[in-house]
């Protein structure tokens, strides 16, 4: 169980980190005002600074109003549901990068239908493959957009 307070602090810290990255990245260039207007680092620098400042503001606000933020951000069963959605999705990205989007699509759809939709394994696998083939026909034939492919397509001689 995560409290709203923890979530607020975490997100504000993340945002401040991104802002800080912009500030550091911008320092590589001039951040002043030359005779041709602002230098190329100025804009990202001040935007980064603004993000850091406002995130600190959120942090202070959250700490001061801590009592009001003890409500639950994520219940255990909600967390399980989100994880059960997010983890396969993250795995889908990893598999896509390794085996290509079509293979990943088939595996991912079949897995989710089987485990979460409670469909029979055969139905799930068949649907996954059918969807991948469908995407292939629409993208590669109708629109001629090549998308990420992996070793399986190479072995089948599909480009």
């Amino acid at each position: 169980m995560i409290s709203r307070y923890t979530a607020e602090i975490g997100t504000a810290t993340l945002a401040a980190g991104l802002g800080l990255a912009a500030v550091i990245g911008a320092l590589e260039f001039g951040i002043g005002w030359g005779d041709a207007g602002p230098e190329s680092g100025a804009f990202p620098f001040y935007m980064g600074l603004l993000v850091v400042g406002a995130s600190v503001g959120t942090l202070v606000q959250a700490t001061v109003g801590r009592k009001g933020l003890q409500s639950v951000f994520l219940h255990k069963e909600e967390a399980v549901r989100v994880a059960s959605f997010f983890l396969p999705m993250a795995a889908f990205v990893v598999v896509s990068l390794l085996l290509g989007l079509y293979v990943a699509t088939a595996i991912y759809l079949a897995f989710v239908m089987w485990t979460q939709g409670k469909y029979r394994l055969v139905v799930s696998v068949a649907s996954g493959i059918a969807a991948a083939v469908g995407f292939y026909l629409v993208l590669e034939f109708a629109f001629q957009v090549p998308i990420l492919k992996g070793p399986l397509e190479a072995a089948l001689g599909i480009y």
Partner: peptide
């Protein structure tokens, strides 16, 4: 924060 991140 949201706007600044967008600009960055």
């Amino acid at each position: 924060v949201s706007m600044g991140l967008g600009f960055a």
